[in-house]
Amino acid sequence: MPHRKPPTDQPAQQSEPGDAAEWRRELELPSERGASRLITEDLLEQLGVHGWSPSDIFAIHLAAEEAIVNAIVHGNKLDPGKVVRVACVVSPTVARIEVADEGSGFDPSSVPDCRLEDRLDAPNGRGVMLMRTFMTRIEYNASGNRVLMEKQRQPAEG
């Protein structure tokens, strides 16, 4: 049996290109502007490590950013007493991101379609739609303060 490094508490951190191991990370973010980078930097790195294409990485980054900003700003309303919980899983075939806030939630179906003619120039209301478009699946819990997003990797063309 080949010699292996002893296991650590974060074995997924040792993933290398081509390694099929999943990377998992859960953490709590403070409800302050800019806090998303505490997770997105590692997430982007791990998507690259697991072989995701630049355009998929862009899509997942955008969805994660929108979900976390929504949770911090609209969910927790920047309340320093509340946190946003983020859980990520990245494998070569699936990227899954769950974002939960401590706010009262919202009804995602109540967000007007920003593509309607009379809404085209409204400055807000595009985040959820971009999340839906760029991810394979997105689901909110019943109260609307937790969202689970998943992207499945498309097989390479050709």
Binding site: F58, E65, E66, V69, D121, R126, L130
Partner: peptide, 17 residues
């Protein structure tokens, strides 16, 4: 520019107006 969020889109829309 490699990335922009929907908050940035909002600023571009307001600027356009």
């Amino acid at each position: 520019v490699e990335f922009l969020s929907s908050a940035a889109l909002g600023k571009l829309i307001t600027l356009d107006r």
